[in-house]
Design a protein around this nucleic acid. Sequence first.
DNA 1: GATGAATGAGATTTCATTCAT
DNA 2: AATGAATGAAATCTCATTCAT
Lengths: 221, 221, 221, 221
Amino acid sequence: MDPSKRQIKENRIIDAAIEVIASNGFHKAKMDNIAKQAGITKVTLYSYFDSKENLYFAIIYRAFQALTEVFYSTIDQNKGVSGLEGTKAIFESFFSFCENNFMYSEALLDYFSMIRSLSRDKAEDVDTSMTTQSSYFIRIQDLQNLPLKLTVKEMERGIKDGSIRSDVDCMLHTLQGWTMVVGYIKLLSASSKNESPLLNVNLKSLKELSLSLSETALAKA
Amino acid sequence: MDPSKRQIKENRIIDAAIEVIASNGFHKAKMDNIAKQAGITKVTLYSYFDSKENLYFAIIYRAFQALTEVFYSTIDQNKGVSGLEGTKAIFESFFSFCENNFMYSEALLDYFSMIRSLSRDKAEDVDTSMTTQSSYFIRIQDLQNLPLKLTVKEMERGIKDGSIRSDVDCMLHTLQGWTMVVGYIKLLSASSKNESPLLNVNLKSLKELSLSLSETALAKA
Amino acid sequence: MDPSKRQIKENRIIDAAIEVIASNGFHKAKMDNIAKQAGITKVTLYSYFDSKENLYFAIIYRAFQALTEVFYSTIDQNKGVSGLEGTKAIFESFFSFCENNFMYSEALLDYFSMIRSLSRDKAEDVDTSMTTQSSYFIRIQDLQNLPLKLTVKEMERGIKDGSIRSDVDCMLHTLQGWTMVVGYIKLLSASSKNESPLLNVNLKSLKELSLSLSETALAKA
Amino acid sequence: MDPSKRQIKENRIIDAAIEVIASNGFHKAKMDNIAKQAGITKVTLYSYFDSKENLYFAIIYRAFQALTEVFYSTIDQNKGVSGLEGTKAIFESFFSFCENNFMYSEALLDYFSMIRSLSRDKAEDVDTSMTTQSSYFIRIQDLQNLPLKLTVKEMERGIKDGSIRSDVDCMLHTLQGWTMVVGYIKLLSASSKNESPLLNVNLKSLKELSLSLSETALAKA
DNA sequence: GATGAATGAGATTTCATTCAT
DNA sequence: AATGAATGAAATCTCATTCAT
């Protein structure tokens, strides 16, 4: 098939999968339903994605893509301001991204769990080729560090323009920011529909606290 | 059966489950393997745990117990020092706990995914009673907020003894600390067996950075 | 399970399979229907028989068993008469067996086709272990020549008692008889429900002609 | 397309199908492989043959054609000798034909299975028109009895010229001869790659025995 | 007429969970 | 309470056949 057509259809399938998975979660989503939602047969579905797992990798890839785009656009919109402001803007975008694309942020988290199981398989010499051959899995490999790198670059710009302390280890601080976002998603996901009593803390304040901690850490004294 | 004997066996099963789940994660673990590892049959396994999920709840409960104990003991060992120091010590313990009990920290995270899935089911009118009536699930409910509360209390002590700024929202800062730990676990799990190039950051420095951010946020100017 | 109980159930499944296959033929029979007919699930069916093919081997085995029993009983009933008469009786029984157990005779024919495909697989170094490991397949190997041997023995008795010519090559004549029966089944199967015009020959006369040819070949001049 | 070109291509496809089917039998042959072997796509294959079955009918038709030709040529070469000799020659040719064209003889046998299956379908009110309207199926109808008729005619010549007993039922004896050949093919196919111990009988002697039985039955005392 | 993609039916597998003894 | 067998739901695969272009 014309590669671009195939791509279009593949995307339609991923759209369908996202809809189904978004409402039921990955484990409860049925391939049958995804196929139905995409208006195709299960067999066709399998001709596009070797397995449910690989289909999920495609979604995860989209999540990384979307996140990356958000990062790029944030950077673009903050060319005029200081690197510190730009860095803060990136983290703010990241937080918003997670809030507005809950399914994607969940996918991002699941990704970490999945590579964790994968690696164990590898350790036990089980055949993981099926999974690791997934083109999307490979593409994720290429993409996963890009958001981090973009953040690092923005921080470095901040160092240059004097808005960020020169002794800041950009990679380290980027990762630290990332842990805060990741932890935030987790809390978000757990609390979004949960009546857990203690979590009556306004998540917005939590986000702001995290952002201000970052700023404090980066900004000149 | 003699209740205490049952308890012993139950614990043995949980031990077995931990071993099996530790190597491939919850979803890839098979009840068959767990039973085998425990030296019993699957049906016996089911006579102890209604479902795979409930078995995992037992593990999660253990994780919460272990974490709580660590918190208590940390608090105990830091009676003499300031509340700020005590708080820092708690977070340090938390980080160490995760590093040393990776499976437990994973279980803690999975717990959040599970209650999220539960709430989804509830929204869809699926019968969740089986799960929510699970004795371990109930026990977790009672325990889940304790570590948070203990941290809050320690922070409050810090406010009283003047080591922590009086305008600190203890619950908020506790949660913020928690997000950093949670994000840290995620990175930990993802990086442990992943050859991702950027993650050549020493995880120890990451932990220390997080701790120092917390301290800065709490300590008097 | 108690081996005998398993055997009983296995036999019930084979009974069900025979019913389904008898009315639709092997290729059109669905595993689903066989399972339903046996009052079990498909999975259970598969726990008894690795594949549809192996299930068919079980039926073929039964066919060989039934045929062997018929041969034994025929021999038993013809102890008093000459070897020639006994031999004729065996062939007569064979013919009747095919007429009365059409499904079995078809299975016998299919067996030859199946081992033919099997052997090609082997030649091409494809993994045939699945098929050849079938316990029924192995059992058939042990049984398949017994009817031939019994016929040979009866012929030899005929040579000894003087009713059969002493220069007869028993194995050869047995096989020759077998070819006539096999050919007869084929015609039977093709004609039974077919309105083929030329086959207005009475199949009974055909059988008698074959028998008389055999007798002529064996009997003393 | 130019009809003759179509015919050529059709034949090429049949050649390819024969190669593929020869190695594993009809049921294990894949349309995919046949298409590949013919150097065309599956859809093109289907534009030539409505179904796998119909493709096989084309092969079967070829088998009947080839067999018929052999019969004609045998008859032609035996004009000068007696009808009995001619009849024997026909059966001899038939045996040789099977040995030399194993795939064809198998196809001939399969044909009987197929028409049996068809008649079953008809009984169950399944629509069989697709098959029965297949041009090759129709052509086979016209041809299938010709070899038998030729044999009958040759026998009748034998009766006239006095070489065959006048009380011989030619149709019946022809069919009887046919059963022997059919049985022979079956044994041939089963033994060719089978390590069955008893089948150490020289198949050539078997053929000769069958022929001599026929001769005895036909020849004047 | 030819092509790649899709379909539908059925075989087979996996696994959590339940049943019968 | 313990066991082997069975269930049901879903994943996955295979292949003849059909569709859209």
